[in-house]
């Protein structure tokens, strides 16, 4: 069961056992783990797992969770200005889902023996990353649509294979996330369609948003395969199921006809169907920008992180109050005796 004794089982030998025996035990554990992964079985929290596997999962799940909660900001930026009550309700529900997804993912990370507090501290200290895409600003209402269509579309392309990830709690969280995300992409597409078919000003707003979000969306799949440091090992462990470039291509192939149906263009003169490959060719990605934003030089890095820190600090007295109330009023079985 979640987090009960996660991270403590089977990682050390019993006291008094010789080093050689410990090594033999480790090897046996490793063999069981490898066989389970090879057989496409799920690894569960209390199973033995290599420390590197655990660390890699914590890194990836934390980054994913952080992305969900930082990702609330660019869209929340438009809740108070949403142009119709219907759009406002949709956007509020979407941003709420992102908080929920963050929660599911932090829970999954906690099963690996790392608390949410630790992860948030690392995020706030800038020691763990979130998706760079959220360091771009939402300048117009159309950006909300473009995020739904392109950013969520790219995220879904990335996330669907994670539903089969070798680590059980992560895979289960992703099943829930993906089920809920499908509305996110559709609402974005629908919002863009309304703009594209709307007034001249609305159409221009939609095109401008797509022009700005297209390339950063392609960067969301991560660096090209030959430069990706984590891909090979993550694939061997079946944390990851496809390479960055495979997923990026899949996304481009899906997005191009969708853009045509929207009546909007994609800002890439090299974009064309390649009969031979059976895929769309696309132009070179500006990786300098990617690395630069990742390093902290994006238009909103400071803003996003300081807003997050501020919310956390402002909420400290609330969290303390509730904890203190619980201490005063809680019986030994955790029931608040209110």
């Amino acid at each position: 069961m979640t987090a009960v004794t996660a991270g403590t089982t089977g990682t050390t030998g019993a006291p008094g056992v010789s080093d050689g025996a410990v090594a033999a035990t480790q090897a046996a554990y490793e063999a069981v783990f490898d066989a389970a992964v090879a057989a496409d079985e799920r690894i569960e929290p209390r199973d033995w797992m290599p420390e590197a596997y655990r660390a890699s999962l914590v890194r990836q799940i934390a980054q994913h969770a952080h992305s969900e909660i930082i990702g609330m900001q660019p869209e929340a930026n438009w809740i108070t200005r949403a142009p119709s009550l219907r759009r406002k309700a949709i956007l509020m529900a979407k941003v709420q889902d992102e908080a929920g997804h963050g929660l599911y993912l932090y829970s999954a990370a906690e099963t690996l023996g790392t608390s949410r507090d630790e992860l948030l501290d690392k995020l706030h200290a800038g020691r763990q990353k979130y998706s760079s895409i959220f360091n771009y600003p939402t300048l117009t209402w159309a950006d909300v649509g473009a995020i739904g269509w392109l950013v969520d579309g790219a995220a879904i392309t990335n996330q669907v294979p994670l539903c089969r990830c070798s680590y059980g709690p992560y895979a289960r969280a992703m099943v829930r996330v993906c089920k809920e995300e499908s509305f996110h992409q559709r609402q974005g597409y629908e919002a863009l369609l309304a703009l594209s078919n709307g007034t001249e000003a609305q159409h221009a707003m939609a095109q401008d948003a797509v022009d700005r979000w297209w390339w950063p969306s392609l960067m969301m799949f991560g660096p090209p395969d030959d430069e990706s440091t984590h891909t090979a090992q993550a694939m061997a462990w079946k944390i990851k199921r496809h390479t960055n470039d495979e997923l990026r291509q899949r996304f481009v192939d899906i997005a191009v006809p969708q853009a045509e149906a929207l009546g909007l263009t994609l800002p890439d003169p090299d974009l064309r169907w390649n009969e031979e490959r059976g895929h769309y060719d696309f132009g070179p990605i500006d990786w300098t920008e990617f690395w630069d934003v990742l390093k902290g030089n994006g238009p909103c890095n400071d803003q996003r992180l300081s807003k997050r820190r501020q919310a956390h600090e402002d909420g400290a007295w609330v969290r303390e109050a509730a904890a203190s109330y619980a201490e005063k009023h809680t019986g030994k079985h955790g029931e608040a005796q209110a």
Binding site: E110, S115, R116, A323
Partner: peptide
């Protein structure tokens, strides 16, 4: 495992009458 002193809880949900509660998350 706490969030500023808030413990972790496991959540079980009965999706409809007639079914048992199943683990939903924490």
């Amino acid at each position: 495992m706490t969030s500023d002193g808030w413990p972790l809880w496991e959540v079980f949900v009965r999706s409809r009458r007639g079914l048992s509660h199943t683990h939903a998350g924490s």
